[in-house]
Amino acid sequence: MHNLLVRTIENLPPLPETVVKLQSYVDSAGSEVRMQEVVNIISRDPLLTGELLRLANSPFYGFSREIVTIQQVVSLLGINNIKNAVIANSINSKLKVDMSPYGLNTQEFLASCSLESSFITNWLIEDDKQLAQILVPCSMLMRLGMILLAGALIEVKKDQEFLEALKESHFRNVALIENEFCGVDHISFLGFLFDHWKFDEVLIQSISYIPNPHAATENVQRNVYALAIANRVFEPYTGGTPYNMSMAKALFAEAKDKGIVYSYESFVASLPVKARENLNIPVTDFGEAGF
């Protein structure tokens, strides 16, 4: 692996002790995992308990009534969903973000990340609540790879050189330039990070195949196409442009050919205004459509 990435991973803050205990118990117990033990582990940590209740009552999960106990959370979401959500929330809370190497305003970038998470939930929650709940950790961390690569570039003082390379390409070849400087693009790096933190294999594959959803195995294709479509809507620099929206529609059609159907009406209704306006603009030239 590229030395820069090795250093980045080595410098990652450790997961909290309770999160590690929960992860270790669920993974080691396998089919013998007991819900009450999961509840007990979480309940010993008041901070984690509060965060998990807040998350369960957020729009991410779309429950019609207030969730007031950890027992309810675990019962409603299932043990694996809880484990994944706890890991994702812990990682999210520790992020230090500076997107200057990408030429992006950090606050606007974080606002876009928040919109992306909400969009995935709003689009899928009525049509396929189970899928929406499974994808919560992915939606929370979709741009984590960019955040960590930006930090690594700043640390080794390659941030300005990286930004100049992006400018020279008119911000069109982001993955190529990430590979040149870091040895990996941010989506592929995110897949590696999911593996590093021992997320479920389903989520690791769901992230890893976003650039090539047609290549994903059948058991994760529904997850992957949903994330690939959302990526076209919120992709940094080109998200929501006429070109990207035409690609999102093409992914809808490709998924349908494989027997994977989502609510297009809910998708359109959940789009940011500009992306919705660009949805039906004819695309004849990449330059005109994207920039």
Rank of each mutant, 00 (worst) to 15 (best):
G103H: 04
N81P: 00
F60G: 05
N122V: 06
D98F: 11
M245K: 04
E32T: 13
A150Q: 07
I260A: 05
L203G: 11
Y25E: 05
I67N: 11
S93C: 02
Y262H: 00
F162S: 10
L4W: 02
F60L: 12
R44T: 11
E235V: 08
I281G: 00
G240D: 01
M35V: 13
R276D: 12
G183M: 03
I207D: 07
I134D: 08
N40D: 15
T106G: 04
D45Q: 06
K129V: 01
I154F: 01
A111G: 10
P236G: 06
D98G: 08
L227A: 07
L148E: 05
H186Y: 13
Q133G: 06
C113V: 12
E66G: 09
D45G: 03
S263Y: 09
H170N: 15
L76R: 04
V136L: 10
N80W: 12
D285K: 04
E155N: 14
I42G: 10
L163N: 08
P101K: 07
L77G: 05
I281D: 00
H2Q: 14
A85Y: 02
T121L: 03
V136K: 09
V283K: 07
L227N: 07
E66C: 09
L48Q: 14
E277I: 04
S208G: 08
A85Q: 13
V73T: 07
R172G: 08
P59R: 08
M99P: 03
K256G: 10
S117H: 12
H186P: 06
D128W: 03
K157S: 11
K96P: 03
P236A: 03
G259I: 02
E108D: 14
N84A: 09
M245P: 00
N11T: 10
A111I: 10
I177K: 01
K21F: 05
S139E: 00
L153M: 13
